[in-house]
Amino acid sequence: MKDVVRIVIAMLVWLAVFSALYGLEGVGCAAGWQHIQVTGATLFQAAMTLAFFVALLILAAVLVGLRSPLFRSDSPFVAHISIILAVAALFAGAWTLFPALALSHCA
C-alpha cells in the first residue's frame, strides 16, 4: 500500500495546494484583503504571492522526498512513476497557480 501512496502523493499534494490557493483567494476577497496595504502591496497580493511560493516549495519537497533513499520505493517501477508524477506535479503547480502572481485582485 505504501507504493500506491508513493504513486499518488505528488498529484494529491498538487490538488491540495491548488484548492488551497483557490480557497485563499475566496477568503481574501471576502475579507477585503485587497484594500489593506502592506509595504507597497496589498495584503491580498502579499498573501497570494507567499502562498504561491510555499506551494511550489511543498511540491519541490515532495519531489526531493520521493528521490531520497528514505522514501524512495524499492520497486524501480514505482520509484520511476512516482518521480515522473512528482515532476509533473511541480510543473502543474507552477503552471496552474501562476495567475496568483499576475492577475488582478477580486475583479
Binding site: 504513486i7 498529484m11 491548488f18 483557490y22 483567494e25 502543474a92 496552474t96 495567475p99 499576475a102 477580486c106
Partner: peptide
Amino acid sequence: AVALAFLSFGLWVHHMFATGIPHMGLAF
C-alpha cells in the same frame, strides 16, 4: 492516467466561467 485523474479534479470551475467568478479564479 494517474496525472489525468488528479488534474481532472482541478477543472470543475471551467464549467462555471460565465458565473461571475473573479478573474484570478478563472485563470487558475
